[in-house]
Amino acid sequence: MAEHKGLLRQRSRDFGIVFAAVVLVVVLSLSTSTFLSVANMVNLLDQIIVVGILACAVTVPMIAGVFDLSMSAIAALSAIIAIHTINAFGLPAGLLASVGTGALLGLFNGVMVTYARVNSFIATLASSMVFVGLATVITDGQIVKSDDASLQLLSRPSGFLGITWGTYVFIAIAILTGILIAKTIYGRALYAVGGNAAAATLSGISVVRTHITAFMISGALSAVAGLVLASRALSAQPATGQGLEFTAIAAAVIGGVSLNGGAGAIWRSVLGVFLLQLIGNGFNLLGAPTIFQKVVQGALILFAVSLDQFLRARDT
């Protein structure tokens, strides 16, 4: 019946986002002399690292049909614990403590959503308040500084074209989560649970386990984002990264990760991050009033979600 139309719609969805990104790149290249410069590119990449990592992180639970709104809270709390550990036991222990804390906080989210049956939106919104609160208690509301300057390595340029080490971490995370979602049986479970949790259960998939691990992954990756932020300032505080999870979720949605679960991909989220950042970059380079930047980005999110709903309208 509507097969051909369906296929065409799918394709237009796939290419729409790519097309939009290409158009922006071309327009910016032609209208500014600085856009294509190495310095601007390196700058652009460095700017997307944190949101990029968070966007990859949130894609995992989103495909399984749940949200994680506690990512910046996890980033802050785990970065604070990391710096305390670095100051006490050195850098390697600190990095481990950071990622471990992130995974543990993700586990807490997962347990709340599965066993305690709290809607993921509310559960992670509430847990983010708990996490930021804990961070404030630990730091007494102060900034914690790292004694070990080697943490700064993440935001230093590498030998190649001056790209920062943090950029490589982001690229590695994008590739690894991309493979995890698209190529492994764990990824299949994510899609199956997001597509129809009841059907997944009857097919022998543990929804509880899938959701808990998804939250642990987004927690651990949020901690990495927190490390990148901490490395820039060589410090952390309860407000570190505040609000970035919303930008990350918006980027994922712009790229075409479904709000209803069961559909999406890492490349979509990464492209969404690029698109949002290109708009910001364009505003700067063109000397346009930056006050309108938020308006354009917000409008893009509305447009993307509306387009998604329109294209997904089933003709059954």
Partner: peptide, 27 residues
């Protein structure tokens, strides 16, 4: 409860035996 409507015939049919079509966890 039976099928995931947004997913393909292939994804739905092979979901129960997903372990059979994987090596070291990779599809």
């Amino acid at each position: 409860q039976g099928l995931s409507l947004i997913h393909s015939i292939r994804d739905n049919d092979s979901i129960v035996v997903r372990d059979r079509f994987a090596r070291f966890g990779f599809r």
